[in-house]
Amino acid sequence: MTNLGTQMRQYEESHPWITFLPKIDDIGYESWLLLGEALSKFDHLAGVPLQPHTAEELSRIFLSKGAHATTQIEGNTLSEEQVRLRVDHDLELPPSQEYLGQEIDNVVTGYNRIVDDVVQRHSLVLTVDRITEFNRIVLKDLTGPDDAPPGTIRTTSVVVGNHYRGAPAEDCAFLLDRLCQWLGDLRKETIATPLERPVAVLSAILAHLYIAWIHPFEDGNGRTARLVEYQLLLQAGAPTVAAHVLADHYNKTRSAYYKELRATSERPPYRVTGLIKYALQGLVDGLRQQIEEIQGQQLGVTWTNYVHEAFQEKTTPACTRQRQLVLDLPLKWTPKSSIRELTPQLALAYADRGEKAVTRDVNALEAMGLIVKAKRGVVTVVRPKVDALRAFMPLVATSS
Rank of each mutant, 00 (worst) to 15 (best):
D361F: 00
V362G: 04
K314D: 08
G369I: 13
T343G: 06
E309C: 09
E366W: 00
Q322M: 15
S337Q: 13
G369D: 06
R376F: 01
T316D: 09
V301T: 15
H308D: 15
A349K: 03
T359L: 04
L348P: 00
N305D: 14
S338M: 10
S337D: 13
V382P: 03
K375Q: 10
R376Y: 02
T343H: 04
P330S: 09
W333R: 11
A357S: 15
A357I: 01
P317H: 06
G300A: 13
F311P: 04
P335F: 07
Q322L: 05
L348N: 08
E366D: 05
Q312V: 13
L370E: 02
T359E: 06
T315N: 12
Q312G: 11
R323W: 00
L348W: 03
G300K: 08
V301W: 13
S337G: 12
T302I: 15
E309P: 04
D328R: 02
E366Y: 01
P335T: 09
V362E: 03
T316G: 05
E355D: 14
T320R: 13
L348I: 05
D328I: 00
Y350I: 01
L348K: 12
E313V: 06
V382E: 04
V372A: 08
A310K: 07
H308L: 14
L348T: 11
T334P: 06
A364P: 07
K336Y: 01
I371Q: 00
V362F: 03
T316Q: 05
Y306M: 10
A357E: 06
E355H: 05
Q312F: 14
T302R: 15
V378K: 05
Y350N: 02
G369A: 11
L327H: 11
W333H: 08
A349Y: 02
A351S: 08
Q322W: 04
L325M: 15
E366A: 11
V381D: 04
G377P: 03
T380E: 04
Y306T: 11
L370C: 08
T380P: 01
L342H: 08
L331R: 11
M368C: 06
I371L: 15
A310C: 08
G369L: 11
L331H: 09
I339N: 07
A374S: 13
Y306W: 15
P330Y: 11
K373V: 15
Q345R: 14
M368V: 07
I371T: 02
R323H: 03
Y350M: 01
Y350K: 02
M368W: 05
A374P: 06
V378W: 00
L370D: 06
T304R: 15
V326F: 13
P344V: 03
N305E: 14
T302G: 04
R376L: 02
L329Y: 07
V358Y: 02
L325A: 03
E309H: 13
Q312I: 14
L365W: 01
V358W: 02
T359K: 03
R360W: 05
V326D: 11
V378N: 05
N305S: 14
